[in-house]
């Protein structure tokens, strides 16, 4: 018998072992997310994919799909929660879009626009974050890191290295590099590594590739992140 869950009143199939996020992506339903990529183990840290499952809030990327689930993905309350979460991500780091090379291609910015976010609501931390420009090809700007953990997972799961980790708590939380000096130039990183290309924001950039695509012609400048993400993630799974 075909197993199904219901998202916003729409009955969709799932297979055993799938998360709610997996089932949603297969059914072309977008649930906002930043720390999730279907190619990697779910992490459940950004909480943007919070959905209501039979009245209780859960992270869609980690919660298994199960028979009889009535899931709400779009509601005024959830949209408001997601907007506040995004605003917290913005004030926790130093996200100055006008001076960032990733603008227009940035998923954090894309989510902000998708959620019709006009302001950051909270007082800004203006946290002191460091940059690491030691590597000849790769730049790390911690000001823009949202601790999605994707670079950690990509380095471990796909690159079979262990270049990145997250260290510290609260305002002192930061990305660390696995090398004796702590600098990227002394690590095992290579420009072809998945970890270098997975960053949803402008925290990890490839040097000498900036502004090759002009501002105004970038990924999310004219297309909302829901359409871009579904097209990409469905393709990743060959559906």
């Amino acid at each position: 018998m075909r197993k199904t869950i219901t998202i916003d009143g729409q009955e969709i199939p799932y297979t055993e072992g799938q998360t709610i996020m997996d089932a949603a992506i297969s059914a072309d339903i977008y649930i906002p997310h930043l720390c999730h990529d279907p190619d990697y183990e779910p992490h459940g840290s950004c909480k943007l994919c919070t959905v209501s499952v039979n009245g209780r809030n859960c992270s869609a990327c980690t919660f298994p799909a199960m028979e009889g689930q009535e899931i709400i993905n779009h509601s005024v309350d959830l949209e408001q929660d997601r907007k506040r979460i995004t605003q917290m991500l913005f004030v926790e780091g130093n996200h100055f879009c006008p001076s960032c090379e990733k603008t227009g291609n940035c998923q954090l910015q894309g989510i902000g626009c998708y959620l019709n976010m006009h302001d950051n609501h909270f007082p800004h931390f203006f946290a002191n974050r460091e940059m690491d420009a030691s590597h000849p090809d790769i730049l790390i700007d911690q000001n823009r890191c949202i601790f999605c953990n994707l670079y950690v997972r990509a380095s471990q799961e796909k690159d079979r290295k262990n270049v990145f980790a997250i260290s510290g708590r609260g305002i002192n939380k930061h990305l660390i590099v696995n090398s004796i000096s702590g600098q990227l130039k002394d690590s095992d990183i290579d420009i072809a590594d998945h970890a270098v290309h997975i960053c949803p924001t402008g925290a990890i950039l490839i040097k000498r590739t900036g502004y090759q695509v002009p501002i105004g012609q970038r990924t999310y400048d004219h297309t909302k992140i829901d359409a871009v993400t579904l097209a990409k993630e469905n393709k990743q799974h060959g559906r």
Binding site: F96, P98, S99, H118, N120, H124
Partner: peptide
């Protein structure tokens, strides 16, 4: 009305906050 990035989040002048 807060108009533009600087009114909304301090913008580039706020880069001196560090």
């Amino acid at each position: 009305v807060a108009v533009g990035a600087c009114a909304i989040n301090g913008g580039l002048p706020a880069m001196r906050n560090h």
